[in-house]
Design a protein around this nucleic acid. Structure first.
Lengths: 215, 215
DNA sequence: GTCTATACTACGATAGAC
DNA sequence: GTCTATCGTAGTATAGAC
């Protein structure tokens, strides 16, 4: 059972194993701060395997962006589909759909097995490279368009700029659960942000989304 | 005039010039991704000056953290003092004080001359090092305690955990203005997030804080 | 496909001139 | 105080064995 779990978590295919390690390391230390030697060592392979499979460090980085986008898109797929189908509905339905989407996004943000993806994607926000295009086209654009549609339905009184601002600030509340984690543990006076804290934060976030989209 | 502006922006004292460059570079590329050689070159000095003034790369990094904390504390000083004096007042006063503090925090987050500080501090959130202690003790702890006090006064009905969660999510909305900047420009369909967009976002943020702290 | 060996560049730290 | 010169280590890329 433990072995099976391991088999799922550590891909047997070398290229996938390299990608998983690389997403983690690039996310932690950035492109320049990560060495292909360290990635190869952690993936238990030779450095030249990276050249063979990805053409070099930069090719590996872009492949990481593609993988993060597809993993995130996969995980948020059901949530986004629910949101899309709610677009033509009433403002109240759109609000509840937005609550569900932001909560599902927040769940991914705090999930342990998605930490590396989130770290990678948030880093790319600060100094966008070509990797950002991959992330945006592969995942973030879908999340954005669904949220824009829901907020527009929930609040038909708002102008386009206000709708966009709402989306930014709603999703920002989810992002801070990871991008402010060190401060959250201090603020909540715990050593580690555990399930108890994340549950409380997610509950407050759902309540906030409802309050902000209500007229 | 252009010269004078330059003289203000580029410190004549070598140690300060090194610090300004280092905050920028560490913020962009992280500790490992930044080379002391590059810092020395950008500060127009020899690499060994870093050893002389800061004892080495790590000493320079910690000095950067101290400087960011003190620069932020200085800029938020008047805002925080106003907030502190409002703690014993009515819930309505506390709410307005919280609106002012979050807005002043957001103003710093989006300010051009504070970009490097914010980048440095947000990066330190993901992989906290000893630098985080300096940032927390020198600035963030004050912001946290004032916000906690204001939310407690504004919403005496809430439990401690709920108060902390509120603070996290309120400040998170300000942080996303920088940590989601690449996505914001896509969401708002502009090439660059300019004054028009930041004004709209800050207005929405003030409105959100009011709505969330109202009972 | 994956490995070892190697060429070349850049890193941080330090010693010593001025 | 600030510089140049240099040491040992570690970086990416590539060639070639298997």
């Amino acid at each position: 059972m433990s072995l099976l779990k391991n088999k799922e978590k550590v891909p047997v295919v070398l290229a996938d194993r390299i990608l998983d390690v690389a997403i983690d390391q690039f996310g932690r230390n950035g492109f320049d701060g990560t060495s292909t030697r360290a990635i190869a060592k952690a993936a238990e392979t030779a450095m030249s395997s990276i050249t063979y499979h990805f053409g070099g460090k930069e090719g590996l980085y872009l492949a990481c962006a593609d993988r993060v986008a597809s993993l995130m898109a996969e995980r948020q797929k059901s949530g986004l589909e629910r949101g899309r189908s709610a677009v033509p509905a009433s403002p109240a339905d759109a609000t509840e759909a937005a609550v569900a989407i932001v909560d599902s996004f927040a769940a991914m943000i705090v999930a342990d097995d998605a930490v590396a993806w989130v770290r990678f994607i948030i880093r790319e926000q600060f100094e966008p490279t070509e990797g950002f295009e991959r992330l945006w086209d592969g995942f973030m654009s879908r999340m954005a368009s669904v949220m824009l549609g829901l907020v527009r339905t929930a609040r038909p009184d708002l102008a386009d700029d206000e709708i966009a601002a709402h989306c930014v600030l709603l999703l920002g509340q989810a992002v801070i659960l990871r991008s402010g984690r060190a401060s959250i543990s201090r603020l909540m006076q715990v050593d580690r942000v555990g399930p108890k804290q994340t549950d409380a934060l997610r509950a407050q976030l759902r309540s906030n989304v409802r309050a902000l989209l209500a007229r």
